[in-house]
Design a protein around this nucleic acid. Structure first.
Lengths: 133, 133
DNA sequence: GTTACTGCAAAGCTTTTGCATCCCT
DNA sequence: AGGGATGCAAAAGCTTTGCAGTAAC
């Protein structure tokens, strides 16, 4: 939480609630997930504030936007390099911290300047597998 | 093109134009890209038809939906397993056919039944790098 | 007192849907 | 002729934005 105390950044109750909800949250919530949770504490909080705060956190580099779910954006407060294991059925997302060696050969990179990578593992989670039976 | 001739599938001019545009297209077009191109040949084609046709192709397994771009869905007619190299600036997407060995250890899979994976490589393309200078 | 933030409502985009008409087979 | 496909327009989601009022500093 300390990391948010800097110049020109006002710590409003709404923001503190959002920071607190995101801190250590590995559930990869959508904007609506965040909105619903924040509303329980601050019923007056608006969707606009949630989106504006998420945008601010993204710009600061304290929040990643996941493009895994075509229906809605999901957010990840864990900014250290990691990958994701996704249930193709319920869309649950699990963090994977294994360091895979997947460096590309120079001649395959089409002269791109590489800045990173991200692996999506697809699978069926135990809960959904059970439902299938 | 032959692969579309089967039971209960009508080959309308609109669909043929879409199939032709997608066939071998490695530009990962959005629905609007497809709509604009098809309109040049069949100005009467509607957006609804484009979306309905893409949905049909997805269900048949002849088209992949990419979730790489948070602003809009993009489509990939290449259904063989491959990865993507993405320009973080202009969002250009390049296909990568290298077969990386990234199998996870059993005990890291959280009991998921694995069905596949997809690597996104992020970089800055030569064109965008030039613009930066 | 300043200045940034909030909330509301409207607007912006992308994608989906219902239904009457059309046309491929 | 029959049934799937088309096109229109409306609707549905998710996300963004403008602005006046509010509150953090």
């Amino acid at each position: 939480m300390e990391k948010y105390k800097d110049k020109g950044l006002k710590l409003t109750p709404q923001r503190l609630a959002i920071f607190e909800f995101l801190d250590g949250n590995s559930g990869h919530p959508s904007a609506e997930d965040i909105y619903r949770e924040i509303q329980r504490k601050y019923p007056m909080t608006s969707f606009a504030t949630v989106y504006k705060t998420l945008e601010m956190l993204k710009k600061r580099g304290d929040l990643l936007e996941l493009t895994i779910d075509p229906a809605r954006r999901r957010y990840d407060p864990e900014t250290k390099h990691h990958h994701h294991l996704i249930c193709v059925d319920c869309k649950k997302i699990i963090d994977i911290y294994t360091d895979f060696q997947i460096d590309m050969e120079e001649d395959r990179m089409d002269s791109f300047e590489m800045v990173g990578n991200h692996i999506e593992f697809y699978g069926i989670c135990p809960e959904c597998k059970k439902k299938e039976e």
